[in-house]
Simulated scan of single mutants.
Amino acid sequence: MDEDALNMSIRKFLKQVGVTSQRAIETVVREGKVSGDRLHVRMTLTAEGTDLNHVVDGEIRLS
Rank of each mutant, 00 (worst) to 15 (best):
R61L: 15
A5G: 07
D51K: 10
V41L: 14
E59W: 05
R30G: 04
D2L: 11
V19F: 14
V41Q: 09
K33N: 09
S63G: 13
A5D: 04
V17D: 04
K15Q: 07
A47R: 06
T50W: 10
L52P: 01
E48L: 02
L6G: 00
L14S: 09
E3Q: 07
A47T: 04
D37H: 05
I60H: 03
K12I: 01
L14D: 06
R11T: 13
L52W: 08
L39G: 05
R42H: 10
R38L: 01
T46N: 08
S35Y: 02
E3T: 11
E48F: 01
A24F: 00
V19K: 13
I60C: 03
R61M: 11
V34D: 04
E31V: 01
H40P: 00
V41H: 10
V28T: 02
T46P: 01
R11P: 00
K15N: 05
E26R: 13
F13M: 10
S9A: 12
E59Q: 14
S63K: 07
V41T: 12
A5Q: 08
L39C: 13
T20V: 15
L6K: 05
R11M: 10
T27Y: 05
N7Y: 03
R23L: 07
I10E: 03
Q22C: 02
H54W: 06
D57I: 03
I25Y: 03
V29L: 02
R23F: 07
T46M: 07
E31I: 00
S63C: 02
E31Y: 00
A5H: 05
S9Q: 10
T50M: 11
G32V: 07
H40W: 03
I10R: 02
D51N: 15
R38I: 01
S21P: 00
K15E: 03
T20F: 04
A24D: 00
F13S: 05
V17H: 08
G32F: 04
T44I: 14
G58R: 14
E48T: 07
Q22V: 02
V34L: 10
E3R: 06
S21A: 12
E48A: 12
H54A: 10
N53D: 12
Q16K: 11
R42T: 15
F13V: 10
L45D: 03
I10V: 15
G58S: 13
G58V: 15
E59N: 09
L39D: 01
V41I: 15
S63H: 06
T44Q: 12
D2Q: 14
V29C: 08
H54S: 08
V34C: 10
R61C: 14
D51C: 05
T20I: 13
R61D: 15
R38T: 04
V17W: 05
R38Y: 01
R11C: 07
Q16L: 11
Q22H: 05
M8L: 12
R11D: 12
G58T: 11
M8F: 09
T46L: 06
T50I: 09
T44H: 13
G32C: 03
Q16N: 11
T50H: 12
E48D: 11
K15S: 08
L39I: 08
D51V: 05
F13G: 04
F13W: 15
M43W: 09
H54T: 07
E48H: 01
D37Y: 02
A47V: 13
D2R: 12
I25T: 08
G36K: 10
G18E: 00
D57G: 02
D4H: 12
E3S: 11
E3G: 01
G32Y: 03
V19H: 14
D57H: 05
N53V: 14
L39A: 14
A47K: 07
D57S: 09
E59M: 14
